[in-house]
Design a protein around this nucleic acid. Structure first.
Lengths: 242, 242
DNA sequence: TAAATAGTGTCTTTAAGACATTATCGC
DNA sequence: GCGATAATGTCTTAAAGACACTATTTA
């Protein structure tokens, strides 16, 4: 306490009960850079915890949908919007913020690495080399965000939005490798992505590079939330009749 | 507005900004009953939306961890604790609560059907036959909870906590069927559960029932969050070296 | 013995890891 | 031609659906 007492914030509602002092939206902004998964952090320059790296979040307000707040804060820091945004979890442990009762809704946000621009306000860190300690409980939030992305990698098309309009198979593979931290066998990777039906060859080829030129692929559709890994569905047995 | 204006609640923090008027924890309490998945709802008896069925939630406070609030509210309504509790999502759309800015943290809670007791304050409804309309956005929250449970059914041991100390294979199978709404082929189901290593035969048998007596099984361990479905892991290719 | 339910065995399809081989580029 | 990289083909293992058949109880 002591020094941080001065910044404590409290709130009461008009019925006379305690209410949250505020609520923040904190996006875990992830992007693959140099073959590794990175997270965007900002250096805190106002109390509390000045000098620590933190998620690029901000306070919410009653008129804005929480996703919009997360998206807006993110655009303020990076100049670009997220390719993908989904709610992670809400962190509301007592004492997580020294200022008082301030729950945080965390978001998983993916950014297209191609449109990234450097920013004085923010820096990218490899997710497995964070500058410890992070502000508040942000270390745990980053870990949860990374876990969510890796968990959904093969069960949705979540990562495909990070690829450019046209891309090659090795390019897609390296993206998946950067996200998951695992190496995939090239021909098997190709087979799975082709069989998914999500992509289609354009017939064009990359040129000017050493080695056999790679074929360019494009997306059949950019619809969100498809499943890559299919499993067989029962034929004889089916939905239980209500 | 009009009639509901009278119950509007607002809050400001000591820094002079709007703050949430309150925050609620709303558990989606699920249990298999009579072979179907049911959800626990309470009838609202105070404004707003008196007479509508709602999730058995309540207001949070700054001193309590949000899971504790959810667990406590649940015990108040049912007399028992949850076998399983995990955070679902936070709902904070503007206007979701006519009283003002009141976000809700929703939880997925599973209750052991064997210890259920009837309660005047709450009733069980099949998840596909809800009394429409539910209060607030609770219909959507219930749907999200059911989806989460079904999604995790085969990728965790989440459902096994709903079985008694000793159980038979057909019993376990009917539980999975009640949750997923899908029928499983008996011998394949047995194979998967046996191969998972999560359960072990006790050698005992059920008696006094028509038909061949079923063998009783027990859990090897009750540790949470195991994975049932295993997939092969790459042998030659492995973790990327940092 | 008949009906009912539990349990075993096995055939088949297919997802997916491993890896040898071939193709096509720049230099 | 040579090194580099992409693409194809195929062998193998194992997960899992389908289903015929056997076993053991009550009535």
């Amino acid at each position: 306490m002591g020094a941080e007492d001065s910044i404590e914030v409290t709130a009461r509602n008009s019925a006379g009960f305690d209410s949250p002092a505020a609520m923040t939206a904190d996006p875990v902004v992830l992007a693959p850079l140099h073959g590794r998964l990175h997270v965007l952090l900002t250096l805190r320059d106002t109390p509390p915890q000045v000098g620590r790296w933190a998620l690029p979040g901000g306070f919410m307000n009653p008129e804005e949908r929480p996703e919009e707040t997360a998206q807006r804060k993110l655009t303020e820091k990076t100049g670009v919007g997220a390719v993908y945004l989904e709610q992670l979890q809400t962190y509301a442990e007592p004492g997580r913020d020294p200022r008082g009762w301030i729950p945080s809704i965390a978001y998983l946000a993916l950014i297209d690495a191609a449109v990234l621009r450097d920013s004085a306000a923010a820096r990218w860190f490899p997710v497995d080399e964070l500058p410890a300690p992070l502000a508040f409980d942000h270390e745990r939030i980053v870990a949860d965000g990374v876990e969510r992305l890796r968990g959904k990698l093969w069960y949705s098309n979540i990562a495909l939005g990070l690829l450019p309009e046209k891309f090659t198979m090795p390019q897609a593979r390296r993206l998946f490798e950067a996200i998951s931290g695992v190496l995939y066998e090239a021909s098997n990777f190709r087979r799975e992505l082709e069989q998914s039906g999500l992509v289609r060859s354009t017939g064009e080829r990359v040129k000017g590079v050493p080695g056999r030129p790679a074929t360019l692929y494009e997306f059949v559709s950019r619809q969100p939330a498809w499943s890559l890994r299919r499993s067989r569905t029962p034929a004889m047995l089916g939905e239980r009749s209500a």
